[in-house]
Each structure stands twice: as structure tokens, then as C-alpha cells.
Design a protein around this nucleic acid. Structure first.
Lengths: 154, 154
DNA sequence: TATTGTTATACTCTATAACTATA
DNA sequence: TATAGTTATAGAGTATAACAATA
């Protein structure tokens, strides 16, 4: 049964949960997922370099560049060239950008909480524990697979 | 911190896990996700109608139709018009399709197991319990939201 | 030469609407 | 008229390659 195949359950659950949140930040605020992640990271800091953002958001440099262009056009962030290394960009929120994020964030978080609040404390603890373990396992396996490829190529 | 925001953790974990499996069925066998799900369901049955497939796979009728076209072109499934209701289609695997799935499935399942095998039995049980609870909660919330919309519209 | 940001290109996914056939 | 399948279209997401600027 497809429905009982774990990879399918994981994909369907993640999609269903994500859809609820996208509804809020996309429909109500017009942010793409990349823009949302970008603002999320930037709102908590004075400023971040393009490298910081790529590393913390798991976006590649193309995604960062495009999200930055859109957010800059909307007047939500500022983009300047780094003085230390002029290949890099330094991003910071504008007051308008920070204000919009601070309006949107509680609504997104509340939507997530509305769902997670339906879980018992035990279920919720199990979810966080299990998910964390799975992410580590998936990353460890990626490393193992890469090692195997490298070994095979030798 | 974005990394500690639960919705982000869920999305990143699901993507990382899925990527491992897609590598196998897409790279090694050339199946899209829809084709893979389609074959998965069909391989376990003598035949299924288009409605059965859509319901069990959470694909809509457009996705079912397109996946069916590609699988038929590849000679992996048969598509006939239902005699009971000539608006419906009845799908079944060809021997070639079933053989290919039965070759691919153990490899995909093994890849999933390679990752899940890194979890302790406790972590694994927690993951399944938590994920199941979350899916139910997300679905319940979708129903609640729809009810609220309907109430608001009255 | 290696790295970064940018732009272009292509492919997949998703969502929606229009059209045909059938009920 | 309502439902099912198909086809077309547009938008978002993802991946890759080419290019210019900088180190």
C-alpha cells in the first residue's frame, strides 16, 4: 500500500503542513518561499552577507540573488557591496521590511501552532525527536553515498 | 533562528529524504514522482480505475492522465475504457511494467532503509507516531479552516 | 585560477481553465 | 446538468551553464 509506505507518508505530511503556512505568507503577504526564508533570517540580524544567507537557508547563490532582487524591488531589504570583499553582498532589512515580517511572522507561527496544538505533548515530543534523527540520518547517508562514489571513482 | 523553526525543519528533512529516493527511481529508472506512485499502486492490483488511482495517490485527474500517457508510451501500463461507465479508464500493468517495478521497488526500499536504519528503534517509533499525528492534525485543520470559511461566507 | 553574483535556459510541478465525451 | 478525461497555459520551483567582476 502506497499510503503505508513511509517515504510517501513523509512527503504527503510535509506537503500538507507546508500548504497551510504558504497560504498565509504567500496569499496574505505575497512572499515566495525563498523570500520568506530570506526575510526570516535577515529580520533577526543587523545585516548578513550573501554567504551567510546561502549557508543558513540552504538556498544556493542563484536563489539568494533572485530573492534579493525581488525583496529589494519591494523596498523590503537593502543590498550593498561588501567593503571587505567586493564580490560579496551585504543585506539588511529596511524598516518597512522588518515591520512587514514582524506582522507576518506571528500569523504564520499561529497557523503552525494551530496544527501542532492538536498533538498531545507526547506526540509532539516524538515528532521532534524522530524528525531530528531522520534529518541527521539523511545527511549522514548523503555523506556516505558521496564517499562511496568517490571510492568507486578511484 | 530559521533552523530551529519547526516548519522549516520538516520541509528540509522531507526534501533531503525524498532526494535520496528520487535519485534511484528517477536517475536509474527514469520515472517521475507521479509515474512512480502510479506504478506503485497499480503493481499491487489486477487493475484500477482512474478514480481509484486519483483517490489513493492524492493526484488529481490531470496528473493521473499525464502519468498514464507517459507510462502507456513506455509500454508499462495498459489503458482501456471502462465498460460500466465509458467516462472512466481502467489501468493495468503490462508484464514489462510489473517486471520493471519489481526490479526498482526493492532498490528504492533499500535506499530508504539505509537511511531509516541509522535510527534507533525508539527514534523510529517516535518518528512514525509523531508523523502520523501531524498528518491527522494537518488534515483536521484543513477541514476546520474550510468550515470557518463556509461559516464566514454565510 | 578560483569564487561570487548575475542572467539565461530548461525541465519539473502545480494550478486552472477550456474542451470533448459520457452520464 | 454534472462528471471524467484530455489538452493547453501560466506560474513557481529546481538545476545547470555561461558570463562578468573580483580575489
Amino acid at each position: 500500500m502506497l499510503q503505508t509506505f513511509f517515504p510517501y507518508q513523509l512527503a504527503v505530511t510535509a506537503e500538507a503542513f507546508s500548504r497551510h503556512l504558504v497560504e498565509v505568507y504567500q496569499h496574505d503577504y505575497g512572499f515566495s518561499r525563498e523570500e520568506w526564508r530570506f526575510l526570516f533570517l535577515l529580520a533577526g540580524e543587523e545585516s548578513l552577507s550573501s554567504l551567510d544567507l546561502a549557508r543558513r537557508s540552504s538556498m544556493d547563490r542563484v536563489q539568494v540573488s533572485r530573492a534579493a532582487s525581488r525583496l529589494e524591488q519591494k523596498g523590503l531589504i537593502r543590498r550593498t557591496v561588501s567593503l571587505q570583499d567586493r564580490r560579496l553582498r551585504i543585506y539588511s532589512c529596511t524598516p518597512k521590511g522588518r515591520a512587514l515580517f514582524e506582522e507576518a511572522y506571528p500569523r504564520v507561527a499561529a497557523r503552525a501552532e494551530a496544527i501542532l496544538g492538536r498533538l498531545s505533548p507526547e506526540e509532539r515530543a516524538a515528532l521532534e525527536l524522530g524528525l531530528n534523527a531522520l534529518l541527521n540520518a539523511a545527511r549522514a547517508d548523503a555523506v556516505a553515498a558521496t564517499d562511496a562514489d568517490r571510492d568507486a571513482a578511484e
